[in-house]
C-alpha cells in the first residue's frame, strides 16, 4: 500500500476522490437545488445597504479561512463561517457567500476538488449555515440583550455549525466513501477534531459579530428590526 503520492500542500476542503462518483453527483444535485433556492430567497434581504456588506462579508470569510490555527500537535483548523454569515447577512445571502468562497478556492487556488464542490457546499454552505442560523435564531432573545448575549449566541451557533458540518462528511463517507478508514474511526475523529475547531470558530465568530454590532448594529441581520408590513415596505420603495 505504499508509493501513492498526493500533492496537497495547502488543502482545506475535501479533495476529489474521497467519495465515489454517484455520491459526488448526489450531493452536487443537493448543493445546486439549495443554491437556486438561496438565490431566489436572497433577493428579499439584499438592498443598496446590505449588498455591499454581503460582498465584504464574503471576502472576509475567504481571508479568515486562510488562517489555520493549531488545535493539537500536528493538526489545525480553520473557520467554516456558517454561523458568521448567517448572523451578519442572513441564511440565504450567507449560503451564497460561503458557496462563492468555495468556488473561488477550488477554481483559482486548487483547494477543494471540483467534483467535491457539491459535498463541500453541502457541508459548509448548507449544513453549516442552516445549523448556525437555526441556533442563532433560537438564541436571539439572548443576543438582543447586549454584547455578552450576542457573543454567547455567536459562539454557540458557530461551535455547533462546525461540529454538525463535520458530520456531513461522515454521512457522505458512509454513503459512498472510497475507503481507507472505518466509519467509526472517521466519525470519532471528525467529531473530536471539529469540537476543538468549533471553539476557534466560536471565538472568531463572536469577536467579528460583536465588533460589527458595536459600530453598525443595523448591519447585523440577526439584530435587525422586525419586518415591516408589506404596505410600509412598498411605500418606502416608492419614495
Amino acid at each position: 500500500m505504499s508509493g501513492s503520492t498526493h500533492d496537497s500542500v495547502v488543502a482545506m476542503h475535501m479533495s476529489d476522490g474521497l467519495v465515489n462518483a454517484p455520491t459526488s453527483l448526489l450531493f452536487g444535485a443537493v448543493a445546486l437545488v439549495w443554491l437556486v433556492l438561496a438565490a431566489l430567497r436572497a433577493r428579499a434581504d439584499l438592498d443598496d445597504r446590505t449588498a455591499p456588506m454581503a460582498g465584504l462579508v464574503t471576502a472576509f470569510v475567504f481571508a479568515v479561512q486562510m488562517i489555520n490555527f493549531p488545535i493539537l500537535p500536528g493538526a489545525s483548523g480553520h473557520l467554516l463561517g456558517g454561523a458568521l454569515v448567517a448572523i451578519l447577512v442572513g441564511p440565504w445571502v450567507g449560503t451564497l457567500c460561503i458557496a462563492i468562497v468555495l468556488v473561488v478556492q477550488a477554481l483559482l487556488f486548487a483547494d477543494g476538488g471540483l467534483t467535491a464542490l457539491g459535498t463541500n457546499i453541502t457541508n459548509m454552505a448548507l449544513i453549516g449555515v442552516v445549523v448556525g442560523y437555526g441556533v442563532a435564531l433560537a438564541l436571539r432573545p439572548l443576543a438582543r440583550r447586549g454584547k455578552g448575549g450576542l457573543a454567547a449566541t455567536a459562539f454557540v451557533a458557530a461551535f455547533l455549525n462546525t461540529v454538525v458540518a463535520a458530520l456531513g462528511f461522515v454521512v457522505e463517507y458512509a454513503i459512498g466513501g472510497s475507503g481507507g478508514a472505518s466509519l467509526g474511526t472517521v466519525f470519532g475523529l471528525m467529531v473530536g477534531l471539529h469540537a476543538l475547531i468549533g471553539i476557534g470558530e466560536g471565538v472568531i465568530t463572536a469577536a467579528t459579530v460583536t465588533a460589527v454590532a458595536a459600530v453598525r448594529p443595523d448591519l447585523v441581520y440577526l439584530l435587525r428590526h422586525e419586518r415591516r408590513p408589506l404596505l410600509r415596505r412598498a411605500a418606502g420603495a416608492a419614495s
Binding site: 500500500m1 505504499s2 508509493g3 501513492s4 503520492t5 498526493h6 500533492d7 496537497s8 479533495s15 476529489d16 476522490g17 474521497l18 477550488a106 477554481l107 483559482l108 487556488f109 486548487a110 483547494d111 476538488g113 471540483l114 463517507y173 466513501g177 472510497s178 475507503g179 481507507g180 478508514a181 472517521v186
Partner: peptide, 17 residues
C-alpha cells in the same frame, strides 16, 4: 507527499486546477 500505510487520502486524485 508519499503516503505509506492505509488512509482515506490515498484515494484523493490530483486537483483538476
Amino acid at each position: 507527499e508519499q503516503l505509506d500505510g492505509t488512509c482515506i487520502a490515498q484515494n484523493a486524485t490530483d486537483h483538476a486546477m
